[in-house]
């Protein structure tokens, strides 16, 4: 087994890296976590490819939802969670509609994203949405141009949501704080800025 080469040369180590799948590469708990979060029997995938064939992101990228299903089954946690393609699912659910094993590959992707977040792996735009909701209750908050337009339409400048009733925002914050979501988002965003 030449899994570790100890050439003492990073470039060489990378070029000659052993890409084999070994028994101990598997984290069986990963599959169990994915199943629990996604509420689908991810282990039952038989790799037919209907999902990738249904996927609008697949033709324009290296994203293959089938491969994520496979990596889930094999317990290839790090590999799946560190793959930037994980974030290319538009959650259109076409694969879920067509899966012959009645699985929800889309929800598997969502579960893997949830698990990635636990390792601080998450694109910045997702975290910014978190901050916006935390601060205003809205992921896409109001702005002045829109306020003026609303008034012209005979609508109140701010909608009757948390915008008009900011007293509801602390409740939203409490819920998010319960899961330390804002805290984590802030931390990850600030670490990224270094």
């Amino acid at each position: 087994m030449a899994k570790v080469k100890e050439y003492g040369n990073a470039e060489l180590e990378e070029k000659l890296r052993d890409t084999s799948y070994y028994t101990d590469d598997s984290n069986p708990q990963f599959l169990e976590d994915v199943k629990k979060i996604s509420r689908t029997a991810a282990n039952m995938c038989f790799q037919c490819g209907t999902c990738t064939g249904s996927c609008p992101s697949a033709p324009r990228s290296s994203y293959r939802i089938r491969l994520f299903m496979r990596k889930g089954v094999l317990g290839l946690e790090k590999e799946a969670l560190n793959d930037p393609d994980l974030w290319l699912c538009t959650t259109c659910y076409s694969c879920t509609d067509r899966c012959p094993r009645d699985l929800a590959p889309t929800d598997v992707i969502m579960a893997m994203r949830n698990l990635a977040f636990k390792f601080d792996i998450v694109p910045r735009n997702f975290l910014k949405t978190v901050q916006l909701i935390y601060n205003s209750g809205h992921g896409v908050p109001n702005n002045d141009v829109n306020r003026a337009a609303r008034v012209k339409l005979g609508l109140p400048a701010d909608p009757p949501t948390t915008h008009s009733y900011p007293e509801f925002i602390p409740g939203i914050q409490k819920i998010m704080d319960f899961y330390k979501m804002k805290e984590n988002a802030d931390r990850i965003l600030s670490e990224g800025e270094h």
């Binding site: 979060i37 969502m110 949830n114 977040f117 949405t129 978190v130 992921g139 988002a185």
Partner: peptide, 11 residues
Amino acid sequence: PAPGAFGAIDL
């Protein structure tokens, strides 16, 4: 909240 952007982080 936004199902893709938000649910993706923590369902």
